[in-house]
């Protein structure tokens, strides 16, 4: 199989990139490891407030449907496939459980997204201890209530959002956080948590999940010296996110470290091209960011692909996208944008 652009990952970044290059008649193949496109949008039932200018406010599930509906007939989607390796002649091996398809691609865009980190404490491997992301997937995508007595660990926006959703479904919810204040910047969400009297235990330490075959209790110490024991049937761990990097490793891209962007990530320049000439990066795998950051980096990368393959003038568009990204990351994600600038500067040294 031959294609102009191979996109690894069918989440928001990959889909938006496919649609962007699709407008120019560029042939694309999207490789998606799960059984559906959409990535994290699939379990995003809330309105996303921070979309780029070109999108109106909508839920993630709506946005996903919009992207999928707009895919051009020049776009081939390979669900349940993974990028698994490279042949000696440079073709990429795209595998399902049965076979490996060799694909020759003029350009590759890696849009593999991010993975949740966990928190390690005794009992964290017990069944019923799941990630916040898994809680969202169960609840919003699979139609399964994760638990009736939920303990949410951490106070990031996804953690608080899940707390609200479970509370609204009638579950008892408690939030346990190791820090001394809320880490979520969404004031509206915070106000709701307070209004609904969802208990938050700050400065918790020495966490331990107890149970025989599944989690039954979460025990922790408080700074006051008290030990607290919560009866529970699900504990959701709200960890940090880190870029998913295997595809960059297979393609031999250079890496750099930027703590504010989630740790190790590929080196790239202002066109979002990695150290390997035909490989680009976009979305959370190029540094953990907001939904607008995911979509704007996807558009910047894919316009640069358009420029390289079609010699289209995209300079002005790209500049205005960078400007928008700077404005958004500069206001709400200040440290991450400085990190991004450092990475790009590094690519030119």
């Amino acid at each position: 199989m031959d294609t102009d652009l191979l996109i690894i990952g069918g989440g928001p970044a990959g889909l938006h990139a496919a649609n962007t290059v699709g407008q120019y008649g560029i042939r694309t193949v999207i490789v998606e490891e799960s059984n559906a496109l959409g990535g994290l949008l699939r379990q995003q039932v809330h309105y996303i407030n921070d979309l780029p200018r070109e999108f109106k406010a909508q839920t993630g599930q709506n946005l996903s449907e919009y992207f999928i509906g707009n895919l051009s007939d020049q776009c081939t989607v390979l669900l349940n496939h993974i990028f698994t390796g490279v042949y000696k002649d440079g073709r990429l091996g795209i595998a399902n459980q049965e076979t490996v398809i060799p694909i020759r691609a003029k350009r590759v865009l890696i849009a593999t997204g991010a993975a949740e980190e966990t928190m390690i404490f005794p009992g964290w491997t017990l069944p019923g201890v799941i990630s916040v992301g898994a809680g969202q997937i169960l609840h919003h995508r699979e139609g399964v209530l994760p638990g009736k007595k939920a303990v949410i660990l951490g106070s990031s926006e996804p953690a608080l959002s899940l707390s609200m959703d479970l509370f609204d479904k009638g579950s008892d919810v408690a939030i346990v956080d190791g820090g001394s204040e809320i880490s979520c910047g969404n004031q509206q969400l915070l106000d709701e948590i307070v209004t609904k009297n969802i208990p938050i235990y700050f400065e918790a330490f020495n966490l331990e999940a107890l149970g025989t075959d599944e989690v039954e209790k979460l025990v922790f110490q408080q700074s006051s010296g008290n030990e607290k024991k919560l009866e529970t049937d699900v504990v959701c761990i709200g960890g940090e996110y880190s870029p998913i990097l295997e595809s960059f490793e297979i393609l031999d891209c250079k890496f750099t470290y930027a703590e504010k962007l989630g740790g190790w990530l590929p080196q790239y320049d202002h066109t979002l091209k990695t150290s390997v000439n035909h490989v680009f990066a976009a979305g959370n795998c190029a540094g953990i960011t907001s939904m607008s950051g995911i979509l704007l980096t996807a558009e910047i990368a894919s316009l640069n692909v358009v420029h390289e393959l079609m010699n289209e003038q995209i300079q002005e568009q790209v500049e205005s996208l960078w400007e928008e990204l700077i404005n958004i990351e500069d206001s709400s994600f200040l440290p991450s944008f400085h990190s991004r600038k450092d990475i790009i500067a590094e690519a030119y040294t």
């Binding site: 698994t84 390796g85 490279v86 042949y87 490996v100 031999d252």
Partner: peptide, 9 residues
């Protein structure tokens, strides 16, 4: 020390 799909297959 990289692997290649040709040899792997």
């Amino acid at each position: 020390r990289r692997t290649t799909l040709d040899v792997i297959q």
